[in-house]
Nucleic acid binder design. Structure first.
Length: 119
DNA sequence: CCATTGACCGGCT
DNA sequence: TAGCCGGCCAATG
């Protein structure tokens, strides 16, 4: 799988994260068909065209914390957007047990074959 | 080709 | 709970 295909799958997966829920990097990678690709998700997110309008704020670390520096503009934007969606952020942390995206099988299969074939 | 980097992760102290 | 640490893996230098 080449770089563009990987990034495309990652972006598509992130688009699927429902409002009011969050997903961690490793989870996005796995659903995108890239096991152990957490760092690739970070890369794809870093290089995503702004025009895609990805809900990037719904992607956080497995620890429940933002990947950004607490003093950064990104951190505040992420926190504010999550709160606006109804996701509780207590002491900079999200309760993963409660808000983690739990996609059902049919949610993963509605996509076109291009997203689940291998090679 | 080898070394470093990074919006990461999970186990262990 | 908070770090530290080794593992991870594509992109960069």
């Amino acid at each position: 799988m080449d770089r563009d295909t990987r990034m495309r799958r990652i972006w598509e997966t992130i688009q699927d994260i429902p409002r009011g829920t969050v997903a961690n990097y490793g989870q996005v990678a796995e659903i995108a068909g890239i096991p152990r690709g957490a760092r690739q998700v970070a890369y794809a997110l870093r290089h995503a065209p702004a025009g895609l309008g990805l809900p990037w704020h719904r992607v956080i670390r497995s620890s429940g914390k933002s990947a950004f520096d607490p003093n950064s503009r990104h951190f505040r934007m992420q926190r504010d957007r999550l709160i606006e969606e109804g996701v509780a952020v207590i002491n900079g942390k999200v309760d993963m047990k409660k808000y983690r995206w739990e996609p059902q099988l049919d949610e993963l299969l509605w996509k076109p074959s291009s997203s689940w074939d291998e090679s």
